[in-house]
């Protein structure tokens, strides 16, 4: 076991845990954002640089600070490590820079994007970004590529987190897409025209942090915040499929089926393509009840609420009351 101090809060985690997961054990608003890291998928992380934190003391044995900010999603804890996230202004400044970088080539077409409302980039930009842009150049765009009947690839929105590449590697029988090109011309593609319809390939839609991969059976049907999430399950014939899903209802219609996600947007159990794309009748499913949606989520609140990212606020609080912040966010946007 290793004991670390994260933003002044002590937490004990098993050796080999990453800093990010240690922070998630504490929970609340001190958890660094993660755009590319995805716990259930091996090999992810380290790319988006959104979760950079300051390690003020490397370990109890060697208490020197680390010279650069480190990606918390892939850096493992050492006993006696002291990590600063929301308590360090330079970390927050860098994060602001990362938001800016991720957004300069993003089309910002949220009003017509199916991911809006449950988009990691939207949340990240809202929490850490600024309202204006310094970017005057033309944005990078890509032609739409047809990759089959189920999934829409919208490369212009992609932030190159590589999640879908690793997901296809680890879940499906054969990966047919990958990253082509390099630099800001790098794109997700199949190179030679190909269809992504391997079983379990639908999970790339769930892992995509932005609206680059969306469900063709749900496209333009409804804004997510107008649909009602309901937990359901069925006895799926596929032994690898859990059959535990969320049905998104509008009135009596099941508009889409997704896997169940935890509070960090990570899929708990993978589902097969049949469950996701074919079973769109209530009679296909055993209903369990409404899904729990975080109160701060735009899906339940219909508007964004600003979480606490102000280091001053955190620093003045006794440790025990940090958790209470979740229930009483001191800052609100708009009304």
């Amino acid at each position: 076991m290793a004991k670390i101090t994260f933003d002044g809060i002590e937490v004990e985690v098993p050796d080999g845990t990453t800093i990010l997961n240690a922070a998630r054990k504490i929970g609340g608003n001190i958890v660094p954002p993660a755009m590319c890291y995805y716990t259930p998928i091996k090999g992810t992380g380290g790319k988006c640089r959104a979760c950079l934190v300051k390690v003020a003391a490397g370990s109890a044995k060697d208490p020197r600070p680390m010279p650069k900010l480190v990606p918390s999603c892939i850096t493992t804890v050492q006993d006696g490590m002291v990590v600063e996230n929301t308590t360090n202004q330079s970390v927050l400044d860098v994060r602001k820079g990362i938001v800016e970088m991720l957004l300069i080539n993003h089309p910002l077409d949220c009003p017509v994007c199916d991911q809006a409302g449950e988009c990691d980039l939207q949340n990240f930009a809202f929490e850490h970004g600024v309202a204006t842009t310094r970017y005057e150049e033309e944005r990078r765009t890509f032609e739409k590529i047809d990759i089959g009947p189920y999934i829409q690839l919208h490369m212009t929105r992609c932030i190159l987190c590589y999640r879908c590449v690793y997901t296809a590697d680890q879940l499906t029988e054969r990966r047919v897409h990958g990253v082509l090109g390099r630099g800001d011309a790098a794109e997700i593609g199949t190179y030679i025209d190909n269809i992504i319809d391997q079983d379990f390939s639908g999970n790339v839609i769930d892992v995509c942090p932005v609206g680059a991969l969306t469900d063709k059976t749900f496209r333009f049907k409804q804004r997510v915040w107008f649909t009602k999430p309901v937990n359901a399950h069925r006895n799926c014939e596929n032994p690898k499929c859990s059959g535990n899903v969320v049905l998104w209802y509008k009135g009596k219609d099941v508009l889409r089926v997704t896997a169940r996600k935890d509070e960090y947007g990570e899929v708990k159990e993978w589902i097969c393509n049949t469950c996701r794309f074919e079973k769109k009748e209530t009679s296909d499913w055993t209903i369990e009840g409404p899904s729990h949606i975080q109160r701060t989520s735009v899906i339940s609140a219909n508007h964004y609420e600003l979480p606490v990212v102000n280091p001053q606020v955190i620093a003045d609080l006794p440790e025990s009351s940090v958790r209470d912040l979740e229930n009483n966010p001191p800052l609100k946007l708009g009304r």
Binding site: R182, D184, A185
Partner: peptide
């Protein structure tokens, strides 16, 4: 290479 966002963008 386009892997991490600050350099790519």
């Amino acid at each position: 290479c386009g892997q991490c966002s600050p350099c790519r963008e």
